[in-house]
């Protein structure tokens, strides 16, 4: 037997959002930062290697695609990230590191953003957290691209100038 609902008397129901004012933004950039999504930012296509690869494999991929960052994947998930800064700090001075596993030199457990996050969150990771390359995930936690400093700057420039 279905539940019988009593009809709502006029004036009995009060809309909890009746006095809600949607946020207003003083600036076009502020609106874009808060109201748009990471998916609307220019995301760099993904360059990746598998977790069992070597440093040389990562260098080969970076040279082939002329990118400064590769995502190290483990079953489709971002296990780590390896960038030109890692090459500068850990690889350049010691050629013997090329044959070693990438897992020894990558940054483990990189901070990520979802395609549905607002651009302000990505900018928080970059400006406050100091991360230069941020993997972008879809709703199934699969990496769909990289948000890098160059394209983020282009995104800001587009709305500033």
């Amino acid at each position: 037997m279905g539940r019988i609902r009593n009809p709502v008397e006029p004036g009995e129901f009060e809309d909890p959002l009746h006095n809600y004012d949607p946020p207003t933004h003083s600036d076009e950039l502020e609106r874009v930062l808060c109201d748009s999504q990471v998916s609307q930012m220019p995301i760099t296509p993904l360059a990746y290697i598998e977790k069992d690869a070597t440093v040389q494999d990562a260098l080969d991929v970076m040279a082939k695609y002329e990118c400064s960052c590769v995502v190290v994947q483990d079953a489709g998930r971002a296990a780590g990230i390896f960038s030109a800064r890692d090459v500068l700090n850990k690889i350049a001075h010691d050629p013997a590191t090329r044959a070693k596993p990438i897992t020894e030199f990558m940054t483990h457990g990189p901070r990520t953003v979802y395609v549905t996050d607002c651009p302000a969150k990505a900018l928080n990771l970059m400006a406050v957290g100091g991360f230069r390359h941020i993997p972008v995930l879809d709703v199934d936690d699969k990496v769909v691209g990289i948000l890098g400093p160059r394209r983020t700057t282009e995104f800001l420039q587009e709305h500033l100038i």
Binding site: E30, P149, L156
Partner: peptide
């Protein structure tokens, strides 16, 4: 990076 920090300083509540 300097530009991003500058923008973040202008929108502390949002960023």
């Amino acid at each position: 990076k300097g530009l991003m920090e500058y923008v973040a300083d202008h929108f502390p509540r949002q960023i």
